[in-house]
Amino acid sequence: MVQSKHVVFDIVGTLTSFDAFYDGIEHTIGNRLASQNLNSRLFGYSWMTAAELEFTFLSVAEGYKPYKEILRALFFRTLHMAGVENPHQFATAEERDQLVQSYSELELRPGTKECFDILRDAGFTIWCLTTGDAQRVAGYFERSAVDMPPNNIVSCDKSGLAKPSLAVYRSMFERFASNDIKFFAAAHMWDVSAAVKVGFLGAYCSILEKEPCEEIFETKMEVSSSSLPHLANEIVAKASEY
Protein backbone atom coordinates (compact mmCIF):
# COMPACT_ATOMS: atom_id res chain seq x y z
CA MET A 1 0.00 0.00 0.00
CA VAL A 2 1.30 3.46 -0.94
CA GLN A 3 2.19 5.55 2.09
CA SER A 4 1.07 9.18 1.77
CA LYS A 5 2.40 12.04 3.88
CA HIS A 6 0.27 14.80 5.38
CA VAL A 7 0.80 17.87 7.55
CA VAL A 8 -2.25 19.53 9.11
CA PHE A 9 -1.61 23.12 10.18
CA ASP A 10 -3.44 25.39 12.53
CA ILE A 11 -3.79 28.79 10.84
CA VAL A 12 -4.50 31.73 13.14
CA GLY A 13 -1.49 32.39 15.35
CA THR A 14 0.53 29.67 13.64
CA LEU A 15 0.64 30.67 9.97
CA THR A 16 -0.59 34.21 10.64
CA SER A 17 0.59 36.78 13.14
CA PHE A 18 -1.78 39.06 15.04
CA ASP A 19 0.06 42.24 14.07
CA ALA A 20 -2.70 43.57 11.79
CA PHE A 21 -5.22 43.16 14.62
CA TYR A 22 -2.99 44.87 17.17
CA ASP A 23 -2.14 47.64 14.71
CA GLY A 24 -5.86 48.19 14.05
CA ILE A 25 -6.49 48.62 17.76
CA GLU A 26 -3.58 51.04 18.11
CA HIS A 27 -4.73 53.10 15.14
CA THR A 28 -8.39 53.23 16.16
CA ILE A 29 -8.45 53.54 19.95
CA GLY A 30 -4.79 53.44 20.96
CA ASN A 31 -4.66 57.00 22.30
CA ARG A 32 -7.76 56.43 24.41
CA LEU A 33 -6.36 53.16 25.75
CA ALA A 34 -3.10 54.91 26.63
CA SER A 35 -5.05 57.53 28.58
CA GLN A 36 -6.30 54.66 30.73
CA ASN A 37 -2.77 53.23 31.07
CA LEU A 38 -3.73 50.37 28.77
CA ASN A 39 -1.52 48.87 26.07
CA SER A 40 -3.11 48.12 22.67
CA ARG A 41 -1.33 44.80 22.29
CA LEU A 42 -2.25 43.59 25.76
CA PHE A 43 -5.85 44.73 25.31
CA GLY A 44 -6.03 42.89 21.99
CA TYR A 45 -4.59 39.74 23.53
CA SER A 46 -7.05 39.94 26.43
CA TRP A 47 -9.98 40.47 24.04
CA MET A 48 -8.99 37.49 21.89
CA THR A 49 -8.36 35.28 24.89
CA ALA A 50 -11.73 36.15 26.41
CA ALA A 51 -13.42 35.36 23.10
CA GLU A 52 -11.57 32.04 22.80
CA LEU A 53 -12.66 31.12 26.33
CA GLU A 54 -16.33 31.81 25.63
CA PHE A 55 -16.06 30.14 22.21
CA THR A 56 -14.68 26.98 23.80
CA PHE A 57 -17.15 26.94 26.69
CA LEU A 58 -20.10 27.39 24.34
CA SER A 59 -18.84 24.52 22.22
CA VAL A 60 -18.48 22.25 25.27
CA ALA A 61 -22.02 23.19 26.32
CA GLU A 62 -23.31 22.34 22.81
CA GLY A 63 -24.05 25.98 22.07
CA TYR A 64 -21.48 26.47 19.32
CA LYS A 65 -21.29 29.88 17.65
CA PRO A 66 -18.76 31.13 15.08
CA TYR A 67 -15.74 32.75 16.69
CA LYS A 68 -16.18 36.07 14.90
CA GLU A 69 -19.62 36.55 16.48
CA ILE A 70 -18.17 35.96 19.93
CA LEU A 71 -15.23 38.29 19.35
CA ARG A 72 -17.69 41.02 18.40
CA ALA A 73 -19.85 40.42 21.49
CA LEU A 74 -16.93 40.48 23.95
CA PHE A 75 -15.49 43.88 23.00
CA PHE A 76 -17.29 46.10 25.51
CA ARG A 77 -17.08 43.49 28.27
CA THR A 78 -13.30 43.31 27.79
CA LEU A 79 -13.02 47.08 28.03
CA HIS A 80 -14.97 46.92 31.29
CA MET A 81 -12.74 44.14 32.65
CA ALA A 82 -9.69 46.22 31.69
CA GLY A 83 -10.93 49.01 33.97
CA VAL A 84 -12.71 51.31 31.51
CA GLU A 85 -15.59 52.79 33.51
CA ASN A 86 -18.00 53.54 30.64
CA PRO A 87 -17.08 51.27 27.70
CA HIS A 88 -19.97 52.39 25.46
CA GLN A 89 -18.86 56.00 25.84
CA PHE A 90 -15.20 55.07 25.41
CA ALA A 91 -15.70 53.47 21.96
CA THR A 92 -18.47 53.17 19.40
CA ALA A 93 -20.10 50.09 17.90
CA GLU A 94 -18.71 51.19 14.53
CA GLU A 95 -15.18 51.22 15.93
CA ARG A 96 -15.73 47.77 17.41
CA ASP A 97 -16.85 46.44 14.03
CA GLN A 98 -13.84 48.04 12.38
CA LEU A 99 -11.56 46.22 14.80
CA VAL A 100 -13.35 42.91 14.26
CA GLN A 101 -12.80 43.43 10.53
CA SER A 102 -9.09 43.95 11.15
CA TYR A 103 -9.02 40.42 12.56
CA SER A 104 -10.00 39.27 9.05
CA GLU A 105 -7.00 41.10 7.62
CA LEU A 106 -4.27 39.13 9.36
CA GLU A 107 -1.20 38.43 7.27
CA LEU A 108 0.76 35.22 6.83
CA ARG A 109 4.01 35.03 8.72
CA PRO A 110 7.27 35.43 6.80
CA GLY A 111 8.48 31.95 5.96
CA THR A 112 5.06 30.40 5.38
CA LYS A 113 5.58 29.97 1.63
CA GLU A 114 9.07 28.57 2.15
CA CYS A 115 7.67 26.16 4.75
CA PHE A 116 5.00 24.94 2.33
CA ASP A 117 7.50 24.61 -0.52
CA ILE A 118 9.83 22.46 1.60
CA LEU A 119 7.00 20.14 2.59
CA ARG A 120 5.46 19.86 -0.87
CA ASP A 121 8.84 19.23 -2.48
CA ALA A 122 9.21 16.32 -0.04
CA GLY A 123 5.85 14.86 -1.10
CA PHE A 124 3.63 16.13 1.73
CA THR A 125 0.04 17.22 1.24
CA ILE A 126 -0.78 20.30 3.32
CA TRP A 127 -4.07 20.74 5.15
CA CYS A 128 -5.42 23.36 7.54
CA LEU A 129 -7.75 22.84 10.49
CA THR A 130 -9.14 26.05 11.95
CA THR A 131 -11.74 27.46 14.30
CA GLY A 132 -12.10 30.35 11.84
CA ASP A 133 -14.56 30.43 8.98
CA ALA A 134 -13.12 28.93 5.80
CA GLN A 135 -13.74 32.00 3.64
CA ARG A 136 -11.92 34.33 6.04
CA VAL A 137 -8.86 32.12 6.41
CA ALA A 138 -8.72 31.42 2.66
CA GLY A 139 -8.34 35.17 2.27
CA TYR A 140 -5.13 35.11 4.30
CA PHE A 141 -3.52 32.84 1.69
CA GLU A 142 -4.99 34.67 -1.30
CA ARG A 143 -3.69 38.08 -0.19
CA SER A 144 -0.20 36.64 0.30
CA ALA A 145 -0.26 34.68 -2.99
CA VAL A 146 0.41 31.40 -1.18
CA ASP A 147 -1.22 28.34 -2.72
CA MET A 148 -3.70 26.65 -0.39
CA PRO A 149 -6.51 24.63 -2.05
CA PRO A 150 -9.88 25.62 -0.51
CA ASN A 151 -10.84 21.94 -0.21
CA ASN A 152 -7.86 21.44 2.10
CA ILE A 153 -9.07 24.08 4.56
CA VAL A 154 -11.29 22.44 7.17
CA SER A 155 -13.30 24.69 9.50
CA CYS A 156 -14.81 23.75 12.84
CA ASP A 157 -17.91 25.67 11.72
CA LYS A 158 -18.99 22.62 9.71
CA SER A 159 -18.94 20.26 12.69
CA GLY A 160 -20.20 22.67 15.37
CA LEU A 161 -17.34 21.53 17.60
CA ALA A 162 -14.31 23.60 18.54
CA LYS A 163 -10.73 22.64 19.09
CA PRO A 164 -9.47 21.24 21.41
CA SER A 165 -12.35 18.75 21.37
CA LEU A 166 -10.69 15.45 20.53
CA ALA A 167 -13.56 14.68 18.16
CA VAL A 168 -12.38 17.52 15.90
CA TYR A 169 -8.85 16.13 15.61
CA ARG A 170 -10.09 12.55 15.33
CA SER A 171 -12.35 13.47 12.42
CA MET A 172 -9.36 15.02 10.64
CA PHE A 173 -7.09 12.09 11.49
CA GLU A 174 -9.56 9.61 10.05
CA ARG A 175 -9.50 11.32 6.64
CA PHE A 176 -6.18 9.61 6.02
CA ALA A 177 -5.18 5.98 5.55
CA SER A 178 -4.00 4.10 8.61
CA ASN A 179 -0.43 3.73 7.31
CA ASP A 180 -0.07 7.35 6.18
CA ILE A 181 2.39 9.68 7.91
CA LYS A 182 0.29 12.33 9.67
CA PHE A 183 1.76 15.39 11.39
CA PHE A 184 -0.17 18.15 13.15
CA ALA A 185 1.66 21.48 13.31
CA ALA A 186 0.74 24.52 15.40
CA ALA A 187 2.19 27.37 17.41
CA HIS A 188 -0.21 26.62 20.30
CA MET A 189 1.02 23.88 22.60
CA TRP A 190 -2.56 23.07 23.66
CA ASP A 191 -3.45 22.51 19.99
CA VAL A 192 -0.60 20.15 19.14
CA SER A 193 -0.86 18.22 22.41
CA ALA A 194 -4.56 17.52 21.78
CA ALA A 195 -3.86 16.35 18.23
CA VAL A 196 -1.17 13.98 19.50
CA LYS A 197 -3.75 12.29 21.74
CA VAL A 198 -5.67 11.01 18.70
CA GLY A 199 -2.56 9.76 16.89
CA PHE A 200 -0.98 12.69 15.05
CA LEU A 201 2.77 13.22 15.21
CA GLY A 202 3.29 16.54 16.96
CA ALA A 203 5.15 19.47 15.38
CA TYR A 204 5.35 22.54 17.61
CA CYS A 205 6.56 26.00 16.54
CA SER A 206 7.37 28.42 19.36
CA ILE A 207 7.09 31.49 17.10
CA LEU A 208 3.97 32.68 18.97
CA GLU A 209 4.12 31.51 22.57
CA LYS A 210 7.92 31.54 23.06
CA GLU A 211 7.43 29.55 26.28
CA PRO A 212 5.91 26.10 25.57
CA CYS A 213 5.11 25.43 29.28
CA GLU A 214 5.79 21.75 28.74
CA GLU A 215 5.23 21.01 32.43
CA ILE A 216 1.51 21.64 31.87
CA PHE A 217 0.98 19.58 28.75
CA GLU A 218 3.39 16.67 29.29
CA THR A 219 3.19 15.75 25.60
CA LYS A 220 6.10 14.48 23.54
CA MET A 221 6.65 16.50 20.39
CA GLU A 222 8.21 14.66 17.48
CA VAL A 223 9.71 17.92 16.23
CA SER A 224 9.87 21.52 17.40
CA SER A 225 11.40 24.75 16.15
CA SER A 226 11.21 28.52 16.49
CA SER A 227 10.61 29.11 12.75
CA LEU A 228 8.24 27.66 10.16
CA PRO A 229 10.86 26.78 7.50
CA HIS A 230 13.04 25.00 10.06
CA LEU A 231 9.98 23.18 11.39
CA ALA A 232 9.27 21.96 7.85
CA ASN A 233 12.81 20.63 7.51
CA GLU A 234 12.49 18.86 10.83
CA ILE A 235 9.20 17.25 9.73
CA VAL A 236 10.78 16.02 6.49
CA ALA A 237 13.72 14.56 8.36
CA LYS A 238 11.52 12.87 10.96
CA ALA A 239 9.21 11.41 8.31
CA SER A 240 12.17 9.56 6.78
CA GLU A 241 12.28 7.40 9.90
CA TYR A 242 8.82 5.92 9.20
Results as ranks from 00 to 15, higher is better:
F75T: 00
E234L: 04
A91E: 01
H80E: 12
P110F: 02
H88G: 05
K5G: 08
V168E: 04
M48T: 10
V198K: 15
F90H: 04
F183S: 00
N37M: 15
F200T: 01
S102I: 03
D10T: 05
Y67M: 14
D97I: 07
A237Y: 03
Y242A: 11
T130F: 05
E222S: 08
T16V: 07
S4I: 05
V8G: 03
Q98A: 10
H27V: 05
F116L: 08
A82Q: 12
P87A: 05
L33V: 09
I29C: 09
S193Y: 02
F124G: 00
E62M: 13
S224C: 10
R175H: 12
L201W: 06
P66W: 04
Y169K: 14
P66E: 11
S46C: 13
N39W: 13
I153Y: 03
H80W: 07
I25S: 02
H80M: 09
E85M: 12
A34W: 15
I29A: 07
S193G: 06
E241G: 06
G132M: 08
H80G: 09
G24S: 09
K182P: 00
W127K: 01
M1D: 12
K220C: 08
R109D: 00
K220D: 10
I70R: 08
P150H: 04
L71Q: 01
Q36C: 15
L42K: 15
G139P: 01
E218H: 07
T92F: 09
A34I: 15
M48F: 10
A122I: 04
F76Y: 09
F184G: 03
K163D: 12
R136E: 07
F75N: 01
Y22G: 02
V100E: 00
A203F: 01
D19N: 12
E214V: 00
E142S: 05
A185R: 02
H80T: 11
V236F: 00
A237F: 03
E54G: 05
C205T: 06
S193P: 08
E26T: 06
A185W: 00
A177S: 13
E214I: 03
Q135T: 07
V12W: 02
